[in-house]
Simulated assay, not measured.
Amino acid sequence: MSDVKTLSERIDTLETRLTFQDETIETLNKTITAQWQKIDALTRQIVHLNERLQEAETRAPGAANEPPPHY
C-alpha cells in the first residue's frame, strides 16, 4: 500500500510540474509573439524612414559631397 501512495504522490508532483511548465511555455510564447510584432513594426518603420531620407537627399539642393561654404 505504501508503494501505491508513493507512486500517487510522485504522479501528483509530476502533474503539478507539468501544469506549471505549460503555463510558463504559454507565457513565454505570448512574450515572444509580442516581441516579434514589435520588431516587425520597427523594421517597417526603419524602411519607411530610409526611403524618406533617400527622397530628401535627392531633392536637397546641391550635391551631398560638396564642402560647406565656409571652406
Score class of each variant (00 low, 15 high):
residue 1 M to I: 15
residue 1 M to E: 13
residue 2 S to Y: 15
residue 5 K to L: 14
residue 5 K to H: 13
residue 6 T to M: 14
residue 6 T to L: 15
residue 6 T to P: 08
residue 8 S to N: 09
residue 8 S to I: 04
residue 10 R to P: 05
residue 11 I to L: 11
residue 12 D to E: 08
residue 12 D to F: 14
residue 12 D to M: 10
residue 13 T to R: 07
residue 13 T to S: 09
residue 13 T to V: 10
residue 14 L to C: 04
residue 16 T to A: 12
residue 16 T to V: 05
residue 20 F to C: 06
residue 21 Q to C: 09
residue 21 Q to L: 15
residue 22 D to Q: 13
residue 25 I to S: 06
residue 25 I to R: 10
residue 26 E to T: 12
residue 26 E to L: 09
residue 28 L to P: 02
residue 28 L to H: 05
residue 29 N to V: 13
residue 29 N to M: 12
residue 29 N to Y: 11
residue 30 K to G: 05
residue 30 K to V: 01
residue 31 T to M: 10
residue 31 T to Y: 01
residue 31 T to N: 11
residue 32 I to P: 05
residue 32 I to F: 11
residue 32 I to C: 04
residue 33 T to E: 13
residue 33 T to F: 10
residue 34 A to M: 07
residue 36 W to M: 15
residue 36 W to S: 12
residue 36 W to Q: 15
residue 37 Q to T: 11
residue 38 K to M: 09
residue 38 K to P: 00
residue 39 I to H: 06
residue 40 D to I: 03
residue 40 D to P: 03
residue 41 A to Q: 14
residue 41 A to K: 06
residue 42 L to H: 03
residue 42 L to N: 08
residue 43 T to W: 04
residue 44 R to T: 13
residue 44 R to F: 01
residue 46 I to K: 12
residue 47 V to I: 15
residue 49 L to T: 13
residue 50 N to K: 10
residue 50 N to Q: 10
residue 51 E to Y: 12
residue 52 R to N: 09
residue 53 L to Q: 00
residue 54 Q to K: 12
residue 54 Q to C: 08
residue 55 E to R: 09
residue 56 A to K: 03
residue 56 A to Q: 04
residue 58 T to A: 13
residue 59 R to L: 14
residue 59 R to Y: 01
residue 60 A to I: 00
residue 61 P to V: 07
residue 62 G to Q: 04
residue 62 G to E: 03
residue 63 A to W: 15
residue 63 A to V: 05
residue 63 A to C: 14
residue 64 A to C: 09
residue 64 A to Y: 08
residue 66 E to R: 09
residue 66 E to W: 00
residue 66 E to A: 12
residue 67 P to F: 10
residue 68 P to S: 12
residue 69 P to W: 01
residue 70 H to C: 09
